[in-house]
Design a protein around this nucleic acid. Sequence first.
DNA 1: GCCAACGTTGGC
DNA 2: GCCAACGTTGGC
Length: 156
Amino acid sequence: MKEKKTLQYWLMKNEPEVYSLKDLRRDKRYAWDGVRNYAARNYLKEMKVGDLVLYYYSSSNPIGVAGVAKVVKEAYPDPTQFDRRSKYFDPKSPKENPRWVAVDVASVSEFPSVLTLQELKHNSFFEDMLVVKKGMRLSVQPVAEKHFNKIVKLGE
DNA sequence: GCCAACGTTGGC
DNA sequence: GCCAACGTTGGC
C-alpha cells in the first residue's frame, strides 16, 4: 500500500461501568451505537478505518484517557434506532434514510493507568484541547495529532 | 446529588 | 424563526 492516507484522531467517551477497554479487548470489536447528538454523529461519519481513538472514561474514578482504540468499520446505520425495546429507539428516524450511525472499534492498547483529566488540565500543552475546555460534553470529538501523540507518550 | 452548559422540542 | 421549557451530559 503506497497510497498516502492521512490518519485522523478522535476521542470517544464511555463510562467504564458501561463498557471498558478491558471489555473491548475481550470482545475484540465493539459497535459504538447510541450516539444521539448531531455533531457527534457527523464526526462518526467522518471516521475512516484505521483512525485512532482515545478511549475516555467519563463519570468514573478516575476520569480520563484509558488507552487507544481504532476504527475497524466505518459509519453504518445504527440498528438501535429501529429497535423499539432499545432506549436509543428513535421513532422519527426514517428507515430509508436513517438518522443515526454507528462505527465499530477495536482495542489497540491500554495505558498502565488512566491519564486523568486533571493532568490534562494542568498541562498547558492541552489547553486548547476540546475535552479540557469547560462544558465540552460531546461524546465523540476530533483530536489534534500533536495532542494525540503527546497523550499516548504520557499514557505509556 | 448538584448544577452549569448545552442541545432539543414545540408553541406561537 | 424565536425562545422558554425541558432533558441530558458529565465534572465536581
